[in-house]
């Protein structure tokens, strides 16, 4: 019974975080900020829902599958965001106009098409 309540609470918080992710997608001004909104709350929300499901489902096979889902999401969300971010940056023109600081631009300007040359100072 207590477990059910905890599972329910976790599910609600997880779903609320998923809603936050959706709202962030609409409100943020450029692609990169939207990726923040799409990865972090969604991953944590899924984590909470999966923990809720772990509390409610009993057999060991399902437990392992749920853990696998969590694991896969943790590994793939940042990598996917990184790849899209990299491609979007190189495609150009996608940073919000009020971006304050851009150290990658100077590095890319030095390095040319094969990749950024990092700043020499540590």
């Amino acid at each position: 019974m207590v477990l059910d309540v905890v599972a329910g609470a976790l599910t609600l918080v997880g779903a609320a975080l998923a809603l936050v992710a959706g709202v962030g997608m609409v409100r943020f001004p450029d692609v990169f900020a939207r990726m923040h909104a799409a990865t972090k709350p969604a991953t944590l929300g899924l984590l909470l829902i999966v923990i809720g499901a772990l509390l409610r489902v009993d057999d060991p096979g399902s437990t392992v599958q749920l853990l696998l889902v969590m694991f896969v999401q943790f590994l793939t969300a940042p990598v996917g965001a990184h790849m899209v971010g990299r491609a979007a940056y190189r495609a150009g023109g996608l940073l919000a106009p009020d971006t304050v600081l851009d150290e990658l631009a100077t590095a890319l300007a030095d390095g040319g098409p094969q990749g950024p040359v990092p700043p020499q100072a540590t």
């Binding site: 998923a18 829902i49 809720g52 399902s62 749920l66």
Partner: peptide, 13 residues
Amino acid sequence: LVLVICAVGVNAV
């Protein structure tokens, strides 16, 4: 797609 996964999770709960 992540929201779809979450929905399946809610179904499991």
